[in-house]
Design a protein around this nucleic acid. Sequence first.
DNA 1: ATTTCTGCAAACACTTTGCAACTGC
DNA 2: GCAGTTGCAAAGTGTTTGCAGAAAT
Lengths: 142, 142
Amino acid sequence: MTDKIPRRITPQRQLILEALRKADYHPTALELFEIARRRLPRLSLATVYRNLELLVANGTVRRLELGGTQARFDWDPAPHYHVRCVDCGRVDDLHGLLIELPARGSETADGYELLSHRLEFAGVCPKCRGHREQSRPRGCSI
Amino acid sequence: MTDKIPRRITPQRQLILEALRKADYHPTALELFEIARRRLPRLSLATVYRNLELLVANGTVRRLELGGTQARFDWDPAPHYHVRCVDCGRVDDLHGLLIELPARGSETADGYELLSHRLEFAGVCPKCRGHREQSRPRGCSI
DNA sequence: ATTTCTGCAAACACTTTGCAACTGC
DNA sequence: GCAGTTGCAAAGTGTTTGCAGAAAT
């Protein structure tokens, strides 16, 4: 891999991207691997990581580094925020919410030049709201 | 450790907390380990992690899971946001910025019950603004 | 032929855990 | 003596990398 731009459309690449686009949530690399492997059993997890990195590099998909430990991926280039369920870890889009924030290029009191921001919500997803009586899981440090 | 509440003030604990409080940025566990080890050379990194977890559990310090891979720590309980330098990874407080966001308990279109949010800014710190001509480092996927 | 890509295994970075020894009531 | 804590080493998790071989042009 000389630079970071995908040159070919391999079955693996196609399959991974398709799995991401079909998911109605934001899957992790491992989740995509397991979906794609159903159709390409010899697929390797390293290939999934490599392809996701390439697709991120060329702007096709977006890597989300939200709470929790694993990266999640997003095929939708439109600006939007995300909600993460504190119970099950599921990540969904948050539609119809736009917030007034400092513009790109503005400067802070400390002399930082602001470039972008990341806003993520934590909440309880519809499914987990049903059976919510359990002990609190770790990782809610938001 | 029966539950998660520190019972004793050990030299290690004191040293770690002091190092955190003295830092003018938000250090990682490893950074705190290296600072504290200067005064307690037999200190173990596991002890730093364990103590930070305890201090987080009892509310003394806050764990920040921002961009990048490592957790960073914050001794300041007052609500405030953070800026991370995309060049060097340094994390600072962002003072004097309060933003109108959906209230805790409000419900989204998708049926999530919102609990909290995390807002982080990416920018270029004063030091890095000086020598800013290099290739872009990885991990700016915000 | 040359470049891109793959699978596999090993390496990696960060964090947590098991355990025997030690400390302070 | 006992619960809390430590250092050390090992294990765990998520991700990246080295490499030889395969695939596409």
